[in-house]
Structure formats: C-alpha cells, structure tokens
Amino acid sequence: MITASILLGLSCLVGAVELTRLWTKKHKRTVAVYAAVLIMGNAMIVLRGLGIALPNPADWLTAALTPLNNMLLHLGLIES
C-alpha cells in the first residue's frame, strides 16, 4: 500500500511537471498519449495495491502462440 501510494504520488508529480511543459509547447497529441499511458500505469499500481490480480500479457501471448508452441514441441525443437 505504502509503496503504491508513493509511486502514485511520484508519477503524478513528474507527470504534472512534464505535462505542463508539453502543453505550453503545444504538443497536444503527446500530452494525450502521455496522460493515457500514465493513467493506465497508475491504475495498474492501484489495483495491485488493492490486491486485485491483473491480467498477464504473457498469458495472452502463450494463448495466441499455442499452435506454434505445439508444433515446435512436436518437431523436437524445444523440450519442456
């Protein structure tokens, strides 16, 4: 919990500084992307801090690549 809030605080602090700088330079799209990713990251931290399990992209990759995995196993190119 403590780590989560500290990280959150820090990222918002840095975010505020950087976003103001970007805004004044009229880089609106950058601000949008930055904010989006920042919110995503912070959300993940908060959720983790609350103990909610987050979806694991490694699992998605494994799911997507299962046919190829099986083929490689079959060929003997990998051994589990």
Binding site: V14, L22, H27, M40, G41, R48, N56
Partner: peptide, 23 residues
C-alpha cells in the same frame, strides 16, 4: 509524435515497472 518520443519515458517506464512485478 515521433519527435517527442523521449517524453513518453516516464509513463511507459511506469508501465514496464508494474508489469515486471507480476509478469
């Protein structure tokens, strides 16, 4: 936004960090 790529460092870094905790 290719020219401002570097500015995205912090939020993306945060993302990589969180992911690394449970990947």
């Amino acid at each position: 936004i290719a020219k401002q790529a570097k500015s995205l460092g912090v939020p993306l870094g945060l993302l990589v960090f969180v992911l690394s905790l449970y990947i």
